[in-house]
């Protein structure tokens, strides 16, 4: 904007924007503050904002709850596992579609996206049945495969848009210099594609971490990740706000930080290139 901005106007916009920003962020801030309170302070009326005896005991309590470490490990295994399995399958596909486009490439891409639109309830019972039949109900491997499949279209799509930005002339130059397919992929494409792959990994870990349909319905004890662990707080006993807050912060903090880093990729990954 080249228009002259008066300082008053800028201060006014700043105040407005910060007010709305803090309003949106408030539930997270409140959860954060509550996680350091004792249960009695957590439900104090009028609410206590900053001046209380900050305590870490809720975090210790949650860690001590027998199933928290397991849920955390499950979340990590499922989110990371499904993302890397997805990347493994998607990189060759996206590479081929970006650099050797055929007549049907567009149709294949759109068809892949359309599988993402399939409502989960439409295939709920068959999946439960198949999982039981294969003896993998409530196992990490089941969740890794299922979450990989529901996110695969997004992974392929994101990688495709990144790969397409790599100029084809570079490949031709490499080929002229006598680089084979292997050298081309290893020394020319991989370094150029790495940032795109990293962003894709980041966004998909976030999506898999927060997935809360299959992770709740296909697990009971052994493979239950943090989504299911937190859901178990929906039937509370006694005072539990501070503990709920601590558990919530533990579940969302790493993803929140990753999310802030991947804001830009979010637009690309979730609009399938329809908004630039």
């Amino acid at each position: 904007m080249s228009r002259a901005i008066t300082p008053q106007k800028k201060i006014m916009w700043t105040a407005f924007a910060w007010a709305f920003g803090l309003l949106m962020f408030f539930p997270i801030l409140w959860t954060f503050l509550t996680s350091f309170k004792t249960e009695a302070v957590a439900i104090a009326d009028p609410p206590v904002w900053l001046f209380f005896d900050w305590t870490l005991e809720n975090y210790a309590d949650v860690q001590a709850r027998s199933n928290y470490p397991k849920a955390l490990m499950n979340s990590i295994a499922i989110a990371v596992g499904s993302t890397f399995l997805g990347i493994l399958i998607a990189v060759p596909a996206a590479w081929a579609m970006a650099f050797v486009p055929g007549n049907r490439t567009k149709d294949v891409l759109l068809w892949m996206l359309s599988t993402k639109m399939l409502p989960a309830v439409g295939v709920l019972y068959p999946l439960v049945l198949l999982a039981k039949w294969l003896g993998v109900m409530d196992s990490r491997i089941l969740l890794i495969v299922v979450l990989m499949l529901i996110n695969l279209p997004i992974i392929v799509w994101m990688l495709y848009t990144y790969f397409r930005e790599i100029p084809g002339e570079i490949l031709e130059a490499a080929r002229m210099d006598g680089a084979g397919l292997k050298a081309e992929i290893l020394y020319v494409l991989t370094p150029m594609a790495l940032p795109g792959i990293a962003s894709t990994v980041l966004l998909n870990i976030i999506l898999a971490w927060n997935e809360a349909f299959w992770t709740i319905l296909l697990t009971t004890v052994d493979a239950a990740p943090l989504t299911a662990f937190i859901a178990s707080f929906s039937a509370p006993e006694g005072l539990f706000y501070a503990k709920l807050s601590a558990a919530s912060m533990l579940a969302v903090a790493p993803i929140l930080i990753m999310g802030w880093f991947s804001q830009k990729q979010l637009v690309r990954g979730l609009t399938f290139g329809a908004v630039k």
Partner: peptide
């Protein structure tokens, strides 16, 4: 035009990254 645009954007976007079960339970209870 404003001061701290990047920070405000982070504050606004944050809820999207919260696990659905967490946001539902925090709103429900607190």
């Amino acid at each position: 035009p404003m001061f701290g645009q990047g920070v405000v954007r982070i504050l606004v976007i944050a809820p999207f990254f919260i696990m659905p079960t967490v946001s539902a339970l925090v709103w429900k209870n607190m």
